[in-house]
Amino acid sequence: MKPIHGVKIMLADDEPHILQFLELGLINEGYEVRTAENGSDAVDLAKEFRPHVAVLDVMMPEMNGFEVCQSLKETEDNIAVIMLTAKDDVDDRVKGLKLGADDYVVKPFSFNELLARIEARLRNQFPDLLGEVVHGPFQVDDRRKEIRYQGQVLELSPTEYELLKFLVLNHGIVLSKSRILDRVWGYDFGGEDNIVEVYIRSLREKLKDKEHRVIRTLRGVGYRVDLL
């Protein structure tokens, strides 16, 4: 994805070498970047800077990443929050997501992984910055709530649209059933997780994906869209 002029990213981490590394990398990608070394400064900076995306380390002095995330989600009109966690702790991920975090990255991570997560959040939460997004054979137009596949408009229900958009905009990333349920159906969904399988099957029929080459199943892990 080509960087969009004027997209603002805030980085908050108490490790200066990580901040410098990420800041230089994102500036080279064309983004406007500001940094904070503790949670309190991050909250103040967000009020002034008004970032589109905030990347927050969980463990920070003064205010931790969870507290900053909650504050940003309560005070900013529309901000995407990506949490950085030092361990692959399910409880940490669940806590962050319940407080409004949109994604998480487990340390250590590659710059390209974080960049892909940032781009996915921009595509999901700021479609007006992007207009129509093209990924391989898919064209996602969030303003018209329309997805084209190989040039043809797909006839999708609202839920099918949201599910396929989520899969396509996160192409190449394995998405678990629980994560899909949280993002597409919401945290308060009280049904069975096999609803995901039902909708995946319907999407495959509409994509004529009998061999599961477009929407792949990784048994015991989740689903991944591969662009052919």
Rank of each mutant, 00 (worst) to 15 (best):
130 L>Q: 09
161 Y>F: 15
146 E>K: 13
20 Q>I: 04
68 V>P: 02
223 Y>H: 10
66 F>W: 05
122 L>K: 03
131 G>F: 05
209 D>N: 09
155 E>V: 10
143 R>M: 14
145 K>V: 08
181 L>G: 05
151 G>M: 04
50 R>H: 14
89 D>I: 10
84 L>G: 00
190 G>N: 12
3 P>C: 06
192 E>C: 06
188 D>S: 13
206 K>R: 12
55 V>S: 04
136 G>R: 06
170 N>R: 15
13 D>E: 08
116 A>S: 15
144 R>M: 10
49 F>C: 09
153 V>D: 07
216 R>V: 14
27 I>N: 09
197 E>M: 09
200 I>F: 01
78 N>L: 12
199 Y>F: 12
213 R>V: 12
159 T>W: 11
224 R>F: 03
65 G>A: 12
185 W>S: 05
103 D>I: 00
202 S>C: 06
129 L>Q: 10
81 V>P: 00
204 R>F: 04
182 D>I: 05
29 E>I: 09
76 E>D: 13
2 K>P: 04
38 N>A: 06
149 Y>D: 03
72 L>R: 00
65 G>L: 05
104 Y>K: 01
93 R>Y: 01
192 E>D: 15
173 I>R: 11
104 Y>T: 05
170 N>C: 11
211 E>I: 01
65 G>Y: 02
189 F>W: 12
216 R>N: 11
12 A>P: 03
116 A>I: 07
139 Q>Y: 03
228 L>D: 15
225 V>W: 00
2 K>Q: 13
170 N>D: 10
44 D>A: 13
133 V>H: 08
207 L>Q: 04
223 Y>F: 15
186 G>R: 08
60 M>S: 08
160 E>R: 07
228 L>M: 14
52 H>A: 12
186 G>D: 06
5 H>Y: 09
92 D>P: 05
201 R>E: 12
212 H>A: 14
68 V>D: 08
176 S>K: 04
85 T>Q: 05
93 R>P: 00
157 S>D: 14
205 E>L: 11
64 N>C: 11
143 R>S: 14
17 H>I: 10
105 V>F: 03
217 T>R: 14
71 S>C: 13
99 L>T: 05
166 F>T: 14
193 D>G: 03
19 L>W: 03
6 G>K: 06
117 R>V: 12
45 L>Q: 08
43 V>K: 01
18 I>T: 08
166 F>S: 08
12 A>K: 01
2 K>S: 15
2 K>M: 14
145 K>C: 07
183 R>K: 15
23 E>L: 04
206 K>H: 10
116 A>E: 15
90 V>I: 15
33 V>S: 00
185 W>P: 01
28 N>L: 11
225 V>S: 02
14 D>T: 06
166 F>V: 06
94 V>F: 07
138 F>V: 01
160 E>K: 06
206 K>D: 07
37 E>M: 13
224 R>D: 05
185 W>A: 07
111 F>G: 10
34 R>C: 05
187 Y>F: 13
214 V>I: 15
199 Y>M: 07
3 P>V: 05
131 G>Q: 07
195 I>F: 02
56 L>R: 02
81 V>D: 01
206 K>P: 08
39 G>E: 06
90 V>K: 13
196 V>P: 04
142 D>A: 13
96 G>F: 03
